[in-house]
Amino acid sequence: MRWVNGAALILAAVMPFILPEAYLYIFGLAYIFAVMVISWDLMVGYTGQVNLGHTTFVGLGAYVAALLQTPLRTGIAMHPAVSIIAGGAAASAVGLAIGIITLRLRGYYFALVTAILPLVFMQTVFIWRELFGGEEGFAVENTLFTTTLEKYYFSLVVLVVSFILMKKIVDSRIGLRFMAVRDSEELAESLGINTTRYKVLAFVLTSFFAGIAGAMVVNYRFTVSPELYGVPLMLLIILSAVLGGLGTLYGPLIGAMVIYLAKNWWLGDIIRTFSLPINDEIVLYAILIAVGILMPEGLYHEIKERWVKSNKQ
């Protein structure tokens, strides 16, 4: 595994020498997207709580960071690095509040409530649009980096750091408790684990990374807009994580890269080349349905199983 990680990292590091700048730009965005996906996996894959409102925290992080570094709107001009952290912190604070209220209950309620959340937050953007800029969003003024190359490396670093942190968390005792909650809440409780507390903890962590990712998007493309709260983004996150394989971090990471690049690069080219009478979303949703039914464990588990089988023979 280690040498695969190393090779991937080296490949990512030399990418700028291989790829034209425009594709580098897409790769950078894909890294940020991957942070959203693996942080979703941290909650859904490891504690088994279906969070349908992950984009709430992506959007929150984005808007908090954007407002903190745009003096024209708020009179505040924080250093972008500080504002990115603040975006993550704000997201996790909201996550804490919502988690305390909703995670006491078991079953579907958490999924249902989180599904509504992004809609509520998106409405705030339209209603207080003097502040949030409404549908149009607004341009962010002082950003961390300006060239694509700088932005690319920065998002790579953020992805690697986030991934290592999350990996450490799931491999620790906390991670074991998350999985205990996932596998059987009753059993976990009988072992003396305060399940609500660990679910809330996971939610706060997942929200933090989502907030960071949102704030990164703002600093990457220099504008903020309400689609960061949107349902389509949420679906893309789910799609990538499920395709990759929940509860593995590696699977969702690969899923995120493949799906994002496919959607924003390859699929469009293919459809244009053959001038098919469909759009790329149709293809993506069809893949999702097929994967969901044929290998509900995700690609990662599927491949791993085959690998193990073939090694035994």
Binding site: V44, V50, G292
Partner: peptide
């Protein structure tokens, strides 16, 4: 999780 994902994907497929 899969039920939600499969039905949601189908809904969006129809929408597209």
């Amino acid at each position: 999780v899969m039920v939600i994902i499969v039905t949601l994907a189908f809904a969006l497929l129809v929408q597209q």
